[in-house]
Amino acid sequence: MAMAERDIVALLKAVLPDADIEMIDLAGDNDHWKAVIVSEQFRGLSRVAQHQLVYRALGDKMGGELHALALETRTP
């Protein structure tokens, strides 16, 4: 089962409300995404910690409804 862009963004915005999020459907199937996320909340965090924050926001959707997600995270 694929996951729609709006649903992914809603989960991310719940944890990162200030984030600027660009979603790129890598395979045209709503199942393989790249997310480019810019948030002040990433400031001072390592790249690993930034990605962990994103994965926590997605919860059990990752690996289920959301099959693959490439991440690019950065601060403004």
Score class of each variant (00 low, 15 high):
M1F: 15
M1R: 15
M1K: 15
M1E: 14
M1S: 15
A2N: 09
A2Y: 08
A2H: 10
M3W: 13
A4C: 10
A4E: 14
R6A: 13
R6N: 12
D7P: 03
I8R: 00
I8N: 01
I8T: 01
V9M: 02
A10K: 08
L11P: 05
L11C: 08
K13H: 10
A14Y: 04
A14P: 07
V15F: 05
V15M: 06
V15I: 06
V15A: 12
V15Y: 05
L16C: 03
P17W: 05
P17H: 06
P17S: 07
D18K: 07
D18A: 07
D18F: 06
D18V: 06
D18H: 07
D18N: 07
A19I: 02
D20R: 14
D20Q: 14
I24S: 05
D25M: 05
L26Q: 12
A27I: 05
G28H: 06
G28A: 06
G28W: 09
D29F: 06
H32M: 09
H32T: 10
H32F: 09
W33E: 00
W33I: 02
K34R: 10
K34I: 00
K34G: 01
K34E: 09
K34P: 02
A35M: 03
A35Y: 01
A35N: 02
V36A: 01
V36H: 02
I37A: 03
I37H: 04
I37S: 02
V38L: 13
S39C: 04
S39H: 00
E40K: 13
E40G: 12
E40S: 13
F42R: 01
R43P: 09
R43D: 14
R43C: 13
R43I: 12
L45P: 04
R47F: 09
R47N: 12
V48W: 13
V48K: 15
A49T: 10
Q50T: 04
Q50G: 04
V54F: 01
V54K: 01
V54Q: 00
V54M: 01
Y55L: 09
Y55F: 12
R56P: 13
A57R: 03
A57Q: 04
A57I: 03
A57W: 00
A57P: 03
G59R: 11
G59F: 11
D60W: 12
M62T: 06
M62L: 15
M62Y: 10
G64A: 15
E65A: 14
L66Y: 01
L66H: 00
A68C: 12
A68H: 14
A68T: 13
A68I: 12
L69N: 02
L71T: 11
E72L: 13
R74I: 08
R74G: 14
R74D: 13
T75M: 04
T75S: 07
T75K: 03
T75A: 06
T75C: 05
P76H: 05
P76T: 02
